[in-house]
């Protein structure tokens, strides 16, 4: 068994750097864009579940194999996918090769992602992220500074965290807002 600390480190250092190419791969091979995030999440979940037994020697190969299997299973389940999708998935190895290059992000790329990410945030959200990341204000201080409620700051931070994490991992940094359904879920339970 791999303990959580090791597992998290492997996930952050080996799996997450593949996110940009993994997402591209999913887009190429799955036509419903709204489902990409769900599928990616399933892949991560499966990768962690397997990785807990033993960390793989070749992480890109491992992750993209999982991706391919999950896509095929989904395709079978939905019965809407045409044959050529299966053929495309045979090209998974190519995806792996390309992905390897994504892993060595230099500081310049990371900075570019940070800048692009923050520029894409909606103005109010950007201000909250600035106050947190640049000024280091707490939620309470940020609320006082902006003259808004703590709830507002928290809501904007949730969006900011999701969008900036996505941007830093090579995504577009655009996120769909969560509905009211989950509001307060992580609050006092």
């Amino acid at each position: 068994m791999v303990d959580d600390r090791q597992l998290e480190r492997w996930f952050c250092e080996e799996v997450l750097p593949l996110e940009a190419s993994l997402t591209r791969y999913l887009r190429r091979n799955w036509r419903t864009a709204e489902q990409i995030m769900d599928i990616r999440q399933d892949i991560y979940e499966a990768a962690l579940t397997g990785g807990r037994q033993e960390l793989p020697a070749n992480t890109p190969g491992y992750v993209f194999t999982i991706a391919r299997n999950i896509l095929i299973n989904r395709a079978k389940r939905e019965r809407i996918v045409q044959f050529e999708h299966y053929a495309d998935m045979e090209s998974v190895d190519q995806g792996v090769d390309l992905s390897a290059t994504d892993r060595h992000l230099d500081a310049r790329d990371a900075l570019r992602r940070a800048q692009e990410g923050i520029e894409r945030l909606p103005p109010r959200c950007r201000e909250v992220v600035r106050l947190r990341k640049i000024e280091g204000l707490s939620t309470r201080e940020a609320a006082a500074r902006m003259g808004v409620g703590i709830d507002t700051i928290e809501r904007q931070l949730v969006l900011g965290i999701r969008a900036m994490a996505d941007a830093m991992l090579g995504g577009a940094g655009k996120i769909r807002r969560g509905g009211a359904a989950s509001t307060g879920k992580a609050r006092r339970q």
């Binding site: 959580d4 999440q41 962690l48 807990r52 900075l111 800048q115 923050i118 520029e119 965290i161 830093m168």
Partner: peptide
């Protein structure tokens, strides 16, 4: 759920990486 760990670790990692905005002396 393992899915919770995946989401939480991913966000924590990405959000920490976004600390780099502190090094941006930029005008958007």
């Amino acid at each position: 759920q393992m899915a919770h760990k995946a989401a939480f670790w991913r966000l924590r990692h990405g959000w920490a990486a976004a600390d780099r905005v502190g090094a941006l002396g930029f005008q958007t």
